[in-house]
C-alpha cells in the first residue's frame, strides 16, 4: 500500500509528497484538506522531535517541505484556513542578540501544539516587546537569547514590562544557549525552559491546557 500524505510528509519524503500534493490538487481535492493533513504531519514531526527521534535538521527540512506545499495549495484556497487556537504567545530574541534557530524551533513547536504565536524575530528592543504584549494581551512571553549579553537584555525587557505596568498580567519564560535557572532569577522571569518541549509544557500549564 502506498504511504499516505501524512506519513510521506512526516517521513520527509520530498519528491513523493510534492508529487502527491499536485495529484490531489489536480484531482480536485479541497485545498484545505491538504493543509489539514500537513498540520497533522507536522504534529508527528513535533512528536518525533520531542521523543528525540528528530533533531534540528528534520525540523528545518520539514519546514521547507511545508512551505513548498503551502505555495502549491495557495492558488486553490477559496477561503482562508482557520483553526482553533488555544491561546497567544509572544516570542522573540532579546536586544543585541541575533540568534534565531532556537527561537524558531520554539515557535514551530508552539504552533504545532495549537498556540497562536507572534514571533518578533531577533534583536528585539524591550519597547517592542512592551508594545506587542499590550496589543495582543498575550498571557505568555518567551524571551530567547544565545549569548551572555542576553542576560542583561532579558532583565531590561522584564523591567520595561514592569515599568509599563504589564508584568503581573503575564508569565515570562526564557531559554537559549547560555540560559539557566540562575539567569531566570537574575532577569526576574517566571521560568527557564531547557528546550522547546519545556517551552510547550510551560505554556500549556500557564494557559491551562490539559
Amino acid at each position: 500500500m502506498p504511504k499516505d500524505f501524512v506519513d510521506l510528509l512526516a517521513d520527509l519524503q520530498e519528491e513523493e509528497v510534492i508529487k502527491l500534493t499536485k495529484q490531489r490538487l489536480e484531482a480536485g481535492e479541497e485545498a484545505l484538506a491538504i493543509l489539514d493533513d500537513s498540520r497533522k504531519a507536522m504534529e508527528v514531526v513535533g512528536d518525533r522531535f520531542a521523543e528525540g527521534k528528530y533533531f534540528i535538521p528534520e525540523l528545518v527540512y520539514s519546514g521547507e517541505l511545508l512551505t513548498q506545499i503551502t505555495e502549491l495549495v495557495k492558488p486553490y484556497l477559496t477561503r482562508p484556513a482557520e483553526s482553533k487556537r488555544l491561546g497567544k504567545v509572544v516570542i522573540g530574541t532579546v536586544a543585541g542578540d541575533i540568534h534565531d534557530i532556537g527561537l524558531n524551533i520554539v515557535g514551530f513547536m508552539l504552533d504545532v501544539h495549537g498556540f497562536e504565536v507572534y514571533n518578533l524575530g531577533v534583536d528585539v528592543p524591550p519597547q517592542k516587546f512592551v508594545e506587542k504584549m499590550k496589543e495582543t494581551s498575550a498571557p505568555v512571553l518567551g524571551l530567547s537569547g544565545f549569548l551572555t549579553l542576553a542576560f542583561d537584555s532579558m532583565k531590561e525587557t522584564v523591567e520595561a514590562l514592569e515599568a509599563a505596568g504589564l508584568r503581573d498580567k503575564m508569565k515570562i519564560m526564557i531559554g537559549g544557549g547560555q540560559m539557566d535557572d540562575e539567569v531566570k532569577k537574575f532577569a526576574k522571569a517566571d521560568a527557564y525552559g531547557k528546550d522547546a518541549m519545556e517551552a510547550v509544557s510551560l505554556v500549556k500549564k500557564w494557559i491551562g491546557v490539559k
Binding site: 536586544a95 543585541g96 542578540d97 541575533i98 549569548l147 551572555t148 549579553l149
Partner: peptide, 18 residues
Amino acid sequence: YKWPGNGLPDSASMIQFV
C-alpha cells in the same frame, strides 16, 4: 559579522555572526 554600531546597538558587548 554584525558589531556594535554596525547592525547591532552601540552597547552590544560582542560581535555576532550573520
